Simulated assay, not measured.
Amino acid sequence: MRRFLSNIHWGDKLIDILVVVLGITIAFALNNWRENRQNAKLEQQYLRNLKEDLVKDSVGLDYSISHADEIFFSIERIQRLAGQSSNADSIYVYLGAIGDDNLLIFKPEDYSYSTMQQTGNITLIETDSIRRNLSQLYDTYELLEMQTDFAFKYQFDRLFTYYYNYDFQSQTTVDDQMYLTSNFRNTIRFYSSNLKERRRLMREALLKIRSLLHSIDQELDE
Rank of each mutant, 00 (worst) to 15 (best):
I75T: 01
V93W: 12
Q118I: 03
D89A: 01
R131C: 00
I125G: 09
R131M: 01
I125F: 11
Y111E: 10
N121R: 05
R77W: 00
D101S: 15
I75A: 12
L103N: 00
F72I: 12
L124N: 06
L81K: 08
D100C: 07
F106E: 02
M116T: 00
Q118S: 02
I78D: 02
Q84I: 13
T123S: 14
T127P: 09
Y111P: 08
S112C: 15
L95R: 00
G83S: 05
S86L: 13
A88H: 05
T115M: 07
I130V: 12
N121V: 05
I78N: 03
S129V: 09
I105Q: 01
T123F: 13
Q79W: 14
Q79T: 07
G99N: 11
S114H: 04
E70N: 13
S74A: 11
L103Q: 06
T123H: 13
Y92R: 12
T127C: 12
T127V: 08
Y94C: 08
D110R: 01
S74Q: 08
N87I: 05
E109G: 10
S86Y: 02
G83K: 00
D100G: 06
P108C: 10
Y92A: 08
D110V: 13
G96I: 04
S114T: 15
S85M: 08
T115K: 09
F106Y: 07
I78F: 01
S112M: 08
R77P: 04
Q118W: 05
G120H: 03
I71G: 13
I122E: 04
T123E: 11
Q118A: 11
S90N: 08
N121Y: 15
L81R: 07
L103S: 11
G120I: 04
Q79C: 07
I105R: 03
N121C: 07
S86P: 05
D101M: 12
Y111T: 14
Y113L: 06
S74T: 09
D100T: 06
Y111H: 12
I105L: 09
D101A: 11
R77H: 10
S86K: 06
G83W: 00
F73W: 08
G96L: 09
N102T: 10
M116Y: 02
N121K: 15
R77C: 05
Y92Q: 13
T115D: 11
E109R: 10
S114Q: 14
K107F: 11
G99W: 10
F106M: 09
D110P: 03
R131D: 03
S129C: 01
I75C: 03
L95T: 04
Y111M: 09
S112A: 12
M116H: 03
F72H: 12
T127N: 10
I130M: 06
R77S: 07
Y94L: 02
D110W: 00
Y94P: 04
Y92I: 12
S114P: 08
E76M: 14
I122S: 03
A97Y: 15
I91S: 00
D101Q: 13
G99V: 08
Q117G: 08
I122R: 00
G99L: 12
A82N: 07
N102S: 15
T123L: 14
E70S: 13
G99I: 06
L103E: 15
T127Q: 12
F106S: 04
G99E: 08
E126P: 10
I91D: 01
G120C: 05
P108Y: 02
T119A: 06
D128P: 10
I91V: 06
